[in-house]
Design a protein around this nucleic acid. Sequence first.
DNA 1: CGGAACTGTGAAAACTCTGTGAAAATGTGG
DNA 2: CCACATTTTCACAGAGTTTTCACAGTTCCG
Lengths: 225, 225
Amino acid sequence: MEQLKILVVDDEARMRKLVKDFLTVKGFRVLEAGDGEEAVDIFFAQKDIALLILDVMMPKMDGWQVVKTIRQHSRVPIIMLTARGEERDELQGFDLGVDEYISKPFSPKILVARVEAILRRSGTAAGDALEVGGIRIDKAAHQVTIDGTPVELSYKEFELLTYFAENQGMALSREKILNNVWNYDYFGDARTIDTHVKKLRSKMGEKGDYIKTIWGMGYKFEVNA
Amino acid sequence: MEQLKILVVDDEARMRKLVKDFLTVKGFRVLEAGDGEEAVDIFFAQKDIALLILDVMMPKMDGWQVVKTIRQHSRVPIIMLTARGEERDELQGFDLGVDEYISKPFSPKILVARVEAILRRSGTAAGDALEVGGIRIDKAAHQVTIDGTPVELSYKEFELLTYFAENQGMALSREKILNNVWNYDYFGDARTIDTHVKKLRSKMGEKGDYIKTIWGMGYKFEVNA
DNA sequence: CGGAACTGTGAAAACTCTGTGAAAATGTGG
DNA sequence: CCACATTTTCACAGAGTTTTCACAGTTCCG
């Protein structure tokens, strides 16, 4: 089974180690960053970070800035660590799009429990399949069913649909899609995405409409409201 | 906009009312249940509850049992309220599939913030957005809603409105607008801005008046006081 | 008041982007 | 090396967007 990657960002190495040890025991792969800039760099270099644990107080770029930067491009779950349980901070965090908020000192067990709860909820957790609007994506089995009926998708089609489903509601530019579904250094024509979208839409039947075109921009996966 | 339904379960009516009031203000529709059995009944009768807020201590059927029962059929997000911040309880809750855990006494603001964070994450509610005078601009989704109703904007219109909203109250010369919304090296007619403003105003209905003309100068975005 | 300068507006022209089908390239397993 | 499936490229038509333009309407200021 693939290990989920968690990025732990804190300027104190001791704190990182503490968190890392507990998460490693639970089977996660833990990456570390010592400040906000490093965190952003690592996050965008690795394209498959499943969760971020982020200290607020850091040199160069504090936790809030990191959240802002990352939220412009990704919905990855974020847990914030902060020194005191000040309500104002916490509220600010939720506004920015922080998923969870844990105040130091915390029990490592609680941390682990929350990490697992968040991953379970976001559908990333191992074994769990991602399901959106009747479309069920089983990453482990590399298999998609729509309203219970299996759909045959090629490799790229599967990757593309998964990327869409994991970023539902977000406007995705062709460039972004290329960087995430294709390799980082892909030099081909961006229009190849259009072709794949066409095939996906046709294979998805009426649910193909969930993939919307944003004119002049790219695509968006959205379940009809 | 459709209102999301939240089911609040607590045996104390006063507590339910407190929570209900705060959530109602935020635009949610709140249902109440006074014990676990009632909660389960209501949950399965109503098909579209978006979130559960659940007290642990309750007559007939306690919070844990409710979670177990519901988790057999649904992944609806669940927030647990508990009297004391005992770690054991919290851990047990996460294992059962509780998404969030808030210990009494809590600040209603925090509760509301967590509700919104969870709904945002589960994709049910909108992400972080810029909101000015009933005009909501979700850059990530590349989508604008006015008083909850989605508005179809073209790419340039979206860019222009975003620029206005981000600089509300400031007088913006045509030159400035061109440099920011169009490319730096744009050589066309500045009057094209007028045309876009016209279309924006018409698409924005009565809120189109927020875009004011500054004679001999340019435009200004300002919400009526 | 009257002219000059500026903005609003509707329609047409110019342009850009997307959907599509088919062909070419690439990969895969026998 | 060949059949087969997948992925990428390409070109064109059609759809949608942006820009231009001409004229009408407003505002400014002596």
